[in-house]
Design a protein around this nucleic acid. Structure first.
Length: 262
DNA sequence: ATGGCTTGTATAACAAGA
């Protein structure tokens, strides 16, 4: 049975409960993975999501920051979480569908402003988080798995509005792009979004600070959908719902979709 | 070139985002 999956950095699931509901009603994905819920699990507005048919939920949360959740129409099994870089943050959770596919939902640290771990501890934590992911995938090669989330890195030149302007900006520096590539290859992960949309500028995040985000279009592709090679050929139909960035009181990220015939 | 905005929280200015 085909199933459609979406990933969305929601930037407060409580504040944007109506937008989550709008997405669920309008697009009806089978699974929605959220990041930056900024809420303890027991304060996520689950009843609203249950009422729309998303009765199965696996989540990790903390007060104020981070937080990840997987909402599903079909039963999912909680497969635990990883605390990479030992930050004590709610940045990962995994769930297994009844067809045996495992979904990893990640929120990789943003990394602060200065791309130098000697002067910016947060940048070091981001690199440590990525190398711990890499080591984990090397130790336990994933199979029949999908990895989604806000990875906070735009790897390709056409994943940012200006490659040259962003070379020293955290999210697109060569050291981050290399770290992400090592993590990706450690799990043999296929970039499903770029498998489906191989050419052209593609973004999933636009800063709140732009006067007119749509016209300026200074975006970055920070949100990703990856899959292991045993299921990557089942994927199709990837898209970014750019319109959601223009909804009232929006998240600064747009949802990214993919469909798998499995 | 710079500054620009938005969130949650010890509800007044922070920190954090990226």
């Amino acid at each position: 049975m085909p199933f459609t999956l979406a990933t969305w950095n929601i930037n407060s699931v409580r504040l944007r409960e109506p937008l989550v509901c709008q997405l669920l009603e309008q697009e009806s994905p089978d699974v929605l993975c959220l990041q930056e819920c900024k809420s303890p699990v027991d304060k996520i507005p689950l009843e609203a999501f249950r009422a729309l048919g998303y009765t199965h939920i696996v989540a990790r949360g903390q007060k104020g920051y981070n937080g990840v959740a997987i909402l599903s129409k079909q039963p999912i099994r909680d497969m635990g979480d990883q605390d990479f870089a030992t930050l004590g943050h709610a940045r990962h959770v995994a769930a297994e569908l009844e067809n045996g596919v495992t979904i990893h939902n990640f929120y990789v640290p943003a990394g602060g402003d200065v791309p130098d771990r000697a002067v910016n501890e947060k940048f070091g934590q981001k690199l440590d988080y990525l190398s711990d992911m890499r080591d984990w995938f090397r130790a336990e090669p994933p199979r029949k798995a999908i990895l989604v989330g806000d990875l906070n890195i735009a790897p390709r030149e056409d994943d940012v509005w200006s490659h040259k302007a962003l070379l020293k900006v955290v999210s697109h520096t060569p050291i981050e792009v290399e770290a992400l590539a090592e993590t990706q290859s450690a799990g043999a992960w296929v970039d499903i979004t770029r498998q489906d949309i191989p050419e052209g500028q593609l973004y999933s995040w636009w800063s709140y600070r732009a006067r007119d985000w749509d016209a300026a279009d200074k975006g970055r592709r920070l949100d990703h959908v990856w899959a292991t090679p045993d299921i990557s050929s089942a994927a199709h139909g990837s898209r970014v719902l750019r319109a959601a960035r223009g909804w009232e009181k929006p998240s600064d990220h747009a949802p990214v979709f993919a469909t798998f015939d499995l």
